[in-house]
Design a binder for these strands. Structure first.
Lengths: 224, 224
DNA sequence: AAAGTTAATTATGAATTCATTATTCAGTCA
DNA sequence: TGACTGAATAATGAATTCATAATTAACTTT
């Protein structure tokens, strides 16, 4: 009898961390909004203890901000934060690209190519929803391919924080086309297993994403 | 009346996160050891609620491991973890080096040079304690110099996790000399404001640190 | 009516309590 | 003797309670 994977019943607070993080990333809980404990407890059917534990974790991850005796507010997405986050994310993706080239097996690369084609189809159809999905799958898979848990964890958190920015500015046609190009290049480099090249391409891809975002954002954000 | 900085009374759990993290990093709480809530509560003079909140945060930071209904254990420092963490840390330091070259002012660089000289003195005197301190000051200052909170946060956590490894293996004379050399180079590049160069040097410095560590570690660690 | 003050209400931080799960240990039987 | 069983104990997860700080509402006072 081989019971390798033991019963996996996550604790309440773990589930709550996941669910609340999703609510923040999916913009259900809006930036700046305060997070009323009682209300959430009622709607989620838990007591305050595990909820508050989850909020502490979320705060350490940067999704909410705690103020003593004033509870939690959803962290706002500032331009400054984006300008700080993207370079870090870019550095992580660069590393991921390098490692992925070395460590991924052929089947994995083929799966990425499949997601890549899905992405192209979504682009042709101008289906933003499907595009984002395929895009995320690709980046996710490349990170996984790096075989590095630490990298994966930190990337996951930063990527989630940045993902919220999609509610701030729409993807321009121009940027969209450029992104597709960049992905084509990345795909080529991955297949050629050009570690250094893919790393640099992924870094550049991120930084270009930031540029486009800041450009689309600039007018509306207070010039600080 | 300018009350820019409001009263800063951290909540209990925040203080606990700091203190417990220190206990782990300073090897007072040993890897694999379980963290008995009651005992800690008594010795710290707090109730279980804030302590448990702190443990959740520490778990999300990777310093402890939670098992449902079995409480928290201090995370062990495995070779695999080090081999995963250092490359990520190296990537962050590379970025920090690049940014620091661009953003630090002259006074800051001079202060780093002063720490650098302290470090050299400590090396001459073979004073490990003082060396570690000066070394940490330098790296800390370079990170600060990058003017990027996100980078700083993530670096801080990873650096703390890795710092625990110093209880696993001693710094060899050979490696120590090499590290000094690398720091000399870094100092030169910083003064020359060679962003790309400093970035690469810091990355290399980290990766060499890992090599030395793994070499010193290899015999004693169970071979995977 | 507007600004300021005080009382009532609400929300939060932390302690305590309760229920459940692990662990320990004595006892049983092969 | 040594492995198994089950009761007793201890530790944990979560709910509840309590004390205090923040917010709101009511009331003055001008």
């Amino acid at each position: 009898m081989n019971l390798t994977d033991s019963i996996n019943r996550p604790t309440l607070h773990e589930e709550l961390v996941e669910r609340l993080r999703n609510l923040v990333v999916e913009d259900v809980l809006k930036p700046g909004e305060k997070v009323p404990e009682k209300q959430l407890c009622d709607s989620l059917g838990v007591s305050r203890t595990p909820l508050r534990e989850a909020l502490k974790v979320l705060a350490s991850e940067g999704f909410v901000v705690l103020q003593a005796n004033r509870g939690a507010r959803v962290a706002s997405v500032t331009r400054e934060e984006l300008e700080n986050t993207f370079p870090v994310l870019a550095a992580l993706e660069q590393l991921a690209g390098e490692l992925a080239c070395q460590k991924m097996d052929v089947a994995e690369i083929q799966r990425i190519e499949s997601s890549h084609k899905d992405m192209l189809s979504a682009y042709e159809a101008r289906d933003r929803q499907a595009y984002f999905k395929a895009n995320q799958d690709i980046h996710q898979a490349l990170i996984k391919g790096a075989r590095n848990d630490i990298l994966e964890n930190h990337h996951k958190l930063l990527a989630a924080r940045v993902r919220r920015a999609r509610f701030l500015a729409n993807l321009s046609d121009e940027r969209w086309a450029q992104a597709i190009d960049e992905h084509e290049t990345m795909m080529e480099l991955l297949k050629a297993r050009d570690a250094d090249g893919l790393g640099k391409a992924m870094k550049l891809h991120m930084m270009n994403k930031l540029s486009a975002l800041v450009k689309a954002l600039k007018p509306e954000v207070t010039p600080r």
